[in-house]
Design a protein around this nucleic acid. Structure first.
Lengths: 354, 354
DNA sequence: TTGAAAGCGGTACCAG
DNA sequence: CTGGTACCGCTTTCAA
């Protein structure tokens, strides 16, 4: 009868039982070196007899320095991040690429006001800052000091982070130009949150164009660039359909209401569509609405006019960039193309009532 | 000038520079032992001068055996899992509880036909089998052998996995009883996929009631228990609104079509609502529809009649169970309560046309 | 309050 | 092809 094992079985136990050196046993499991078939078989049998679970990843990680884990950092809770189909789809594409190389994703939500950043406390080979608004992120220094692969989509703004950005400003301006070409001039703008705890409501243009979050700011600037009126801007408190509806309602209640709404995200735009319906306005006959992102909405009858970021493809592209970084390649920041997608939510401006 | 550091700075470097032993420096960072204020200060200064990133989590993990990581395993791709609001919401609740104790989630998608299970290759303290259909899962032995905390929602069926299940069968039967009390007798059933690559379409009752996936099978059994007709069952190929619509359409095309559809998930039910609209049927006047899960659908006008699993709360409950397991407590499998939620998608059966 | 030293469980080099 | 051995970087006794 074999001696009773106390803790988990280790490689040394297996090697001893098989009558080989640990180094040889290690080769059997990693498949790296040449091992005689008979020896390998002996080791495998010893392993299964002892109930060996395979090399402990913790030890392997310490030795090799690689963890096969990529962190995904974002501000806010997981629930709030995943309420946005854009983020979910992007992450799906990212995961798809990383799966190929057997990397797993470690979700790192960074709740507001967390005392110490969680970020550096985990072992990872790289980090994707998927949808971080804030331009700086505590804990980044530690990650950089460890030499991790760092990839972002605009934030945090740091030379050590490779960025895949989009032309937020130009894409938004394109949407406004599209609406103007349809005869709209009274165009409203619904923005993403301006900060961690900003309430829903109308704001002066300056509040949006000074926003520290690059995407929010640049889209607002694009809106203004293209001649969007500075007095028709409202902020959504968070990235939900409800907040979009409320912000849109605030604009539609104006004495001289807009005939079109340019929203900084598709989710917000769908909220605007609902707000319109609640006021008895038809989309696009009475009100045109545009979004941003290009999410799939199988339940929405019609197609949102939007700046299509192709989230799945963008996620895959981020995945490929991450894999190259992990392979030690030098990767330059780049821009990802956004396409204007014409849907059924925009139409000619209605004739003003007599 | 200090000597040029080659690799990343280690605790030993810091200790040397501060003129203390590594063990003392360790205490400064972990805050575990008593260290004189002056000593601690010296260590911290040395650390910042050297750009020390803090204790390397890999080494700490090997030594302590704890990783502060919980894996979330499911079959299929991340994209498909996150297409279901139920799963997303549940994961949000789970994450919320684990955040409290600073655990991060490691996503472990297990694509079909992956050669070797990825599962055991990562360092974790526990694993949640969130929405695994398959009753068995390769790699489970290795996880159990390492003594990980194992938690599931019905699958994999294994004594080593603590389960939080629901009464799928009873809840579905309740929905059917509700419809029968409204005068429906011709009731159709739209099931979740019966296997990894099952096509959408009608199936004999036996196909569903023999399904290896416990939830699919038990809901089908509940449907039959309550007197649902065995000839009006259709399978959705995957968990999407489109597949639900197709499966529903297959039933509605029957020579003697149903006046109500009991769907095994809310997403499928919303597909059924769409299929009804495409055939010019009004819900609930011409067709009653029920779902399962209790997801939030801010964009859906009305409220789905459903078996409400309270996904956010269920996720939190799973989180609490996981934390107890991680703390070494003995935790028994339990049942989570499901509530019948009456919405606006069910009504009296229409009078049969004269 | 601090220091010395023994691992945690593998991996990777090198010699044979 | 196989065995010995020096680490990987930190935590944790235990002694001083």
């Amino acid at each position: 009868m074999s001696p009773q094992q106390v803790g988990p079985v280790t490689l040394a136990d297996v090697a001893r039982r098989a009558g080989v050196a640990v180094s040889t046993a290690s080769l059997v499991f990693s498949g790296r070196g040449p091992v005689a078939a008979a020896t390998a078989e002996r080791v495998r049998r010893a392993a299964s007899e002892l109930g060996y679970a395979g090399p402990d990843p913790r030890a392997a990680q310490l030795r090799t320095g690689r963890t096969r884990v990529v962190g995904v950092s974002y501000d806010g809770t997981l629930a709030s991040a995943f309420a946005d189909p854009y983020q979910v789809t992007l992450l799906g594409g990212f995961s798809q690429e990383l799966d190929r190389e057997r990397y797993a994703l470690l979700l790192l939500p960074e709740p507001l006001g967390a005392p110490e950043p969680n970020l550096a406390a985990h072992s990872m080979d790289g980090v994707l800052f998927a949808l971080c608004g804030a331009p700086d992120r505590p804990g980044l220094d530690a990650l950089a000091a460890r030499g991790l692969a760092l990839l972002g989509t605009g934030a945090p703004a740091d030379d050590r982070v490779v960025q895949l950005t989009i032309d937020d400003r130009g894409a938004t301006a394109d949407l406004v130009h599209h609406l103007r070409s349809l005869g709209h001039s009274r165009i409203g703008h619904v923005t993403l949150p301006l900060g961690p705890a900003a309430p829903t409501g109308r704001v002066p243009a300056g509040a949006a164009s000074d926003c520290p979050y690059a995407d929010t700011r640049d889209r607002a600037l694009g809106f203004l660039d293209a001649g969007g009126p500075a007095d028709l801007i409202a902020v959504a408190r968070d990235l939900t359909l409800e907040a979009g509806a409320e912000a849109a309602a605030a604009l539609l209640a104006d004495a001289h209401p807009p005939t079109a709404l340019v929203c900084q995200s598709d989710v917000l735009a769908l909220g605007a569509v609902r707000a319109a319906a609640e006021r008895g306005l038809r989309v696009p006959d009475d009100l045109s609405v545009t979004g941003f992102d290009g999410i799939e909405t199988p339940w929405f009858p019609g197609l949102l006019t939007t700046a299509d970021q192709r989230p799945a493809e963008k996620g895959r592209e981020l995945g490929r960039l991450m894999l190259r970084l992990l392979a030690g390649e030098q990767v330059a920041s780049a821009t990802f193309g956004v396409r204007l997608r014409l849907g059924t939510t925009t139409a000619r401006a209605p004739r003003p009532p007599a």
